[in-house]
Design a protein around this nucleic acid. Structure first.
Lengths: 272, 272
DNA sequence: GCTAATTTGGAATATATGTTCTATTTTGCT
DNA sequence: AGCAAAATAGAACATATATTCCAAATTAGC
């Protein structure tokens, strides 16, 4: 046989499988065939299940794993499980460590945030529902005026969208709570609301969504996860789950979605 | 509480999660949030891993599963393993797919921005100078008050940093031009200025940098490229070159740097 | 500010699952 | 056909993981 190295990537795994499957006794060949046809099951099955699927004994499947270069089934499974979640380390605990130990230079911290941002972006692409996105664009493109609200952590996103809309000559209004002036009466028929809110959900934002949707106006919401209180309203929801780094998020994915939405609306909108 | 039935579909699971998450004590709520944001992990993780991710004890996560109507974690996991249909399109194939086949649609646009963001992040890591970053942290950590200025496109960054500093009890002041009130006299000895500006450089921001550095106060600047007009002043410069798509930039890299800077300052700063 | 009820953390326990071992069967060779 | 080598099945063992339990801490009500 060739190298004894453990496959560390799905690709390497496939190559090894192909390379080995020629010269395999009956039962082990069954394993190879079954695995080739059901690679995705490895991540969520037990040896017993895989063995049954292949029509062999667990011990046979075990030997099969070892021939592929792994120490056992668990090691092989880990490869598939890790590649499934795309390496999404637990940042919240890592930040705690950074804080406590105070070790790690700013550069190391930057590396962490870059990594978190990268993971968030990849995840965004995987989880966004194209249909919801299209619907959101349609709603906002039709609106006579887009009202934008986002407080605290969401404010940067709201303000960036306001900037982008302004640049593209799309009528939009950023509802910031400057001076506690609540310009709620600016919302009129034909308008739409774009609400951005993340846990912990600011009451003002929720209130505004409630008020606006009570008037029958359409609402588009950018929020996190599915437990958002916005689910109670008939809004078009775009959910982004940003990798959490302690109390902070880099907002990479959120801003990406935001700018996409803004540009799509700007281009779709009937001129003037 | 409502029904006691075991959720038998992901949809039912989500509904149950939403319905229950309102009235949940602290730790259980953490579980709910983490699960909502990481549903895909349930199929391939152990209770211990899920619990750690949520920042709780395994036993707490266990109770959470039971509140959702399952007998335990295993039963809940089975739901996700069974409904796991395999075929998880990995990031790169999904990206290609969206780019080509969905051309012109919002989803394709999203793919472009995600890719641009990813490239920007990678570039950020390569180009940032650790020494400059450390110096910036040092300057801001020593300042009695951090004055933040950033207009137009830079305003989201400025406001996010203001938010982050506030969260960490770091004295900071966001100089927005609300009502054209220019609070320049708020700047005092011992303070520092954090200026964020990108081409085309807003005059107000440059003016402020000039005024502040004329008083001998330290300035940290986040800007693009090396031809920034800020080079004329004795400021610590962190340059980010964001990959742009069309006329817009997703700001991914800039925000990443911003939040890094904020957290680094927050942790380095002497308490109180 | 005290008491009762709820919630939580951590260790103890039970169970499921992976892994190894060996007698038995099968295969390949002369 | 008879022998040696390889492969297999099934049981025995080891480990990892889920689950439960209870004392300590927290919260809510009075």
């Amino acid at each position: 046989m060739g190298d004894i190295g453990v496959p560390t990537t799905i690709k390497a795994f496939e190559e090894r499988l192909l390379e080995v499957s020629e010269s395999l006794p009956k039962r082990l060949r069954q394993c190879a065939d079954y695995v080739a046809a059901n690679k995705d099951r490895i991540a969520v099955s037990t040896v017993a299940e895989m063995a049954e699927g292949a029509g062999v004994q667990p011990s046979a499947f075990m030997r099969f794993c070892q021939i592929l270069g792994f120490s056992g089934f668990s090691e092989m499974q880990r490869l598939f499980r890790d590649s499934y979640v795309g390496g999404w380390p637990d940042y919240s605990t890592r930040l705690d460590h950074l804080r406590e130990k105070a070790e790690g230079s700013p550069s190391a911290l930057l590396a962490e945030f870059v990594e978190a941002g990268r993971a968030s972006l990849e995840n965004l692409l995987k989880t966004i529902e194209p249909h919801a996105l299209e619907q959101a664009v349609k709603i906002l493109a039709r609106a006579q005026m887009i009202h934008i609200i986002g407080m605290r952590r969401s404010f940067p996103v709201a303000s960036y969208m306001a900037y982008a809309f302004e640049k593209m000559n799309v009528p939009a209004m950023l509802h910031s709570a400057v001076g506690r002036l609540e310009n709620r009466n600016a919302v009129r028929d034909g308008d739409a609301l774009l609400a951005i809110t993340f846990s912990p959900y600011t009451a003002d934002t929720i209130d505004m969504v409630e008020a606006v949707s009570a008037h029958g106006l359409p609402v588009v919401a950018i929020t996190d996860t599915i437990v958002s209180p916005l689910r109670k309203f008939p809004a078009t929801i775009l959910s982004v789950s940003e990798v959490d780094f302690g109390a902070f998020r880099s907002l990479s994915a959120t801003l990406c979605l935001a700018i996409t939405l803004a540009v799509a609306v700007g281009t779709e909108r009937p001129e003037k």
